[in-house]
Write a protein that binds this DNA or RNA. Sequence first.
DNA 1: TCCAAAATCTAGCAACGCTAGGAACTAGAG
DNA 2: CTCTAGTTCCTAGCGTTGCTAGATTTTGGA
Lengths: 192, 192
Amino acid sequence: MAIRERRERERAERERAIITAARDLAESEGWDAVTTRRLAAEIEYSQPVLYSHFKGKEAIMAAVAVEGFADLARDLAAARAAAAGERQAVAAVAEAYTSFAERRPALYDAMFTLRVDLPFASPDAPIDLPRGFAELADTVRPIAAADELEALTETFWSALHGLVTLMRSGRLRRADHARRLALLVDRFTRGT
Amino acid sequence: MAIRERRERERAERERAIITAARDLAESEGWDAVTTRRLAAEIEYSQPVLYSHFKGKEAIMAAVAVEGFADLARDLAAARAAAAGERQAVAAVAEAYTSFAERRPALYDAMFTLRVDLPFASPDAPIDLPRGFAELADTVRPIAAADELEALTETFWSALHGLVTLMRSGRLRRADHARRLALLVDRFTRGT
DNA sequence: TCCAAAATCTAGCAACGCTAGGAACTAGAG
DNA sequence: CTCTAGTTCCTAGCGTTGCTAGATTTTGGA
């Protein structure tokens, strides 16, 4: 049954190719450019092949998003590890988060703004999703009371997310970003 | 030239009808249901008539959004006026903001999440947009240093926006919303 | 009453996500 | 080596979208 294995391996490779092509295309030309036709041409197969791997376009975007969670978690962890102290860690992680969103806007959108039915705060969420959240929570822990850790982490995350999305959609001036970020960190770390 | 005036009046009425129909349809069935065909049927004209009023679908959404800014500004002003003190005003306005987003999700999306090229932080922004922002700024003023008022207002706004969008997209549990809101207000009003 | 101009509609284009049904290839049996 | 059953894949097309060119109708003044 080695043939079956080879088949499955090839299928898995092709699935990865689809995800990679979708991510690359989205990052270079935006999600609007990621059409099923374009994607099929990119992987050199016909459209229906995409549907043999994924239920639809949304599922492909969800798969791309899942990869993103791993990247983000890595970035946050690195920022936290490199920080000198607990207060600085908050600032560093905040900076890392917004910088990730700025550097990889399409990926960020798939993860956090576009509607994709990924299970978030639920047991069957993608593995890297809680990792990223845990990274945030560990950063927030020193500035949170024990019983408010989760809620405060979510609130901090929301603030970062809001800053990022409003800025990226042109609703906040980019020039003042650092200032806003500093204010946010200041308010969250005050009196602790 | 009374005829010309009547014509212009009728045109203005029809333009309002388009905006109203778009808003109603979006609020009852979501923006996906707002197609140019559907909208044309709703106002009992053919599709091209829409394009004689607006450049495209995005422009119609932008017009709906502009209306929303007036509503939101009103809500925020009312909440602030009804609050007992400065600290309570912050909480009341935060609550009013998120409540607006929850009650009128489609309108909120047109205003703040969907890409529409509305000029925001610029001189030729729609008149009610700075009004809403000013309402927020006035609320934030007592808890801000003089030179950080604008940036802090933007940061506070971002946090509210983040809470709203992450919750509405199912990325935050609705049950903990009040708790997160309280934490946010607490952190922003601390030490003032 | 007629005509130019304005207003409006019909019909259709290109592109989208998605899928049914047939063609082409593959693996194992005889 | 050949045939067949089963899998894999592609062609072609459906219904829908935003948008528009060109024909048609309506309008107001001569």
